[in-house]
Design a binder for these strands. Structure first.
Lengths: 338, 338
DNA sequence: ATCGTCGCTGTAATCGATTCCACGGCTCTG
DNA sequence: CAGAGCCGTGGAATCGATTACAGCGACGAT
């Protein structure tokens, strides 16, 4: 592949001049510029980003470490992140942690080795040592969706508290009293927060959240299935199951079907995270929607602010309840929540 | 961030020795090795992958350009690709083309600029000039899922012909005669092939595929919706709609619902690409499943073969029909297709 | 005693870019 | 007309690694 030297030779100028033309530096004569551009064209030259990065100490690349690419919520987030980053002139390298702390470590390390300009992380596990360490390594970093307590890094996330309160009110209005939750891993902030918000909302209605109604999940389909099976085996099973993410809701649906039960007649189901498929499940699933696009864009903007020396603030956006029919009542206007 | 020089100084050796230790070169004294390792530890040194890549002319990175990350099929493919690549010591950078040729160009160019060691592409559009050009650029390349005719590059893909024949036979057995297809873009091989296989399978049953029963889609949800609306407005609408990918099937389901029709009583629906959600839609959707994991792994192995100087062959794996109930008959044993 | 060999180490070139500095030639000014 | 200033340009240092080559002791063989 042609290098800057080849271009310089072809154009009859020095590499310095070629570099200046390529970086649109002002002091280049029109003639030299023309010759360089022609040489670039002839040779099909493309600057070597690796060499450039080494010299300039910037890669114009952002790292994004997400907990699980197969989760449509994160896929969507990743898409928006890439879009916004591209608009700002950055590329994005995605690392998929698959909810495994050591995989998360691996990706953070790899990305840091590549000298990415900034890191966007949705930590799978707060207790892993490297990720906080990365914060201290001087690489700009922003948490998205989830965070690690006690690490001083801007966080961009959605607050589901109000939406969960709305959900519980909705369920209470429908006459449901025995409400269960499938929680995420205790190591994640989103795992804890959603349980706490749920518990608090229940308390406002004079309801308790017994331990038996808290299923321990890990944000993966299987754990939703297992937790639901345990609920259904209880002497007094819950009337509604609320899954803390969409994959566990899918697992819950599996488990309910396998028992030969129907939603919502026999048991209600609601989920955190709304995805297009929830409209088409049997029945359509009531869910809490996060403003994924805004989240992704805000996260990139915060990170780029950090990289370019401005100081960003943390961002918290509201989530909202989308009522469908999986808890016992079809939304009054079925088209309204499409 | 500490560089190799700092480590050399700290350990009291030259940079050459440090490099040798880091690359486990044989001729280093145990003493020097110990001192270097200690220095690495003290400084928290990590080799700069950018500098290393510049010198060695290899990045140990693969590029993967896919047509649409939001399509669960591609997401899954990407996951398996990353997994296999990691096992072989490579990282993966994903570029999402969003079915737009110019975005695809952008990503291919960016990846090439980064001097990735190899490129895995699922071309959104065969007519774009850069991607074939990239093949000539000396960067190893493999097509996955889709290919560009006339470009001499190994292809790893699934052949849906037999599965489509099975599907048509299944539909015929159920008494359906008016079968329509929502095709993918004509510029993609998968777009054409599926229509041709469908047409051929129909012919075997003495059925025709009138133009009115071929909807032009672009593998996106909306196009599935629009094509289906057109089908339903026909004086004699089809009895079954076969969508050439899962997103268009989703759109078709939307359109059918919006008309107040029921699946499968009023109209049947089948899709190419099977995804977990199809089990939980109303009704569960009959689909053609690709061996995504095998596809992703085979693609990476072929690419790495190419990179490391072995000569890989193209791979074609069979897809298979998964019968559910969206075409009029519940599978005999509902658990058998989970 | 001398020479070759072997093991270990350091010096320096190199990868492909960016950028500081100096220099030659020109114009402008006093 | 001399000196200052500016413009365009090239030479060379630099980023952080890898690696060819040479040097240097120690040791064994002759």
């Amino acid at each position: 592949m042609a290098s800057i030297k080849d271009v310089a030779a072809e154009a009859g100028v020095s590499v310095a001049t070629v570099s200046r033309v390529l970086n649109s530096h002002p002091s280049v004569s029109p003639d030299a510029q023309r010759r360089v551009l022609a040489a670039v064209d002839v040779l099909g030259y493309r600057p070597n980003a690796v060499a450039r990065s080494l010299r300039t100490d910037q890669t114009r690349t952002l790292g994004l470490v997400i907990s699980d690419v197969l989760n449509p919520y994160f896929t969507e987030l990743a898409r928006f992140v890439e879009e916004e980053a591209r608009a700002l002139g950055y590329s994005v390298i995605i690392g998929n942690a698959d909810e495994q702390p050591d995989l998360q470590e691996h990706h953070v390390r790899t990305l840091l080795d590549r000298r990415i300009d900034g890191l966007l992380v949705s930590p799978a596990d707060g207790s892993s040592p490297l990720t906080p360490g990365a914060a201290g390594s001087g690489t700009p970093m922003v948490f998205v969706d989830r965070c690690i307590q006690g690490v001083d890094v801007p966080v961009v996330r959605a607050d589901g508290r109000d939406a969960i309160r709305d959900l519980v009110a909705h369920l209470h209005r429908l006459g449901h009293r025995r409400l269960a939750i499938i929680a995420g891993p205790a190591a994640t902030t989103t795992g804890n927060e959603r349980v706490e918000a749920f518990r608090e909302a229940l308390r406002e209605h004079g309801l308790a959240l017994p331990d038996a109604y808290i299923g321990q999940g890990d944000f993966q389909t299987d754990s939703g299935r297992r937790a639901t099976e345990r609920f259904l085996a209880l002497p007094e099973p819950p009337e509604v199951v609320f899954a803390a993410d969409n994959l566990m809701a899918l697992g819950a649906l599996d488990a309910i079907r396998a028992r030969g039960l129907r939603v919502p007649q026999d048991i209600g189901l609601a989920a955190f995270d709304d995805i297009p498929w929830f409209l088409h499940t049997d029945p359509p699933i009531t869910a809490i929607a996060q403003p994924t696009g805004e989240l992704g864009r805000a996260a990139v903007r915060a990170l780029v602010d950090l990289i370019e020396g401005r100081s960003p603030q943390s961002v918290t956006l509201p989530a909202r309840l989308v009522v469908r029919s999986s808890c016992g009542e079809r939304a009054s206007n079925p088209r309204s929540n499409l």
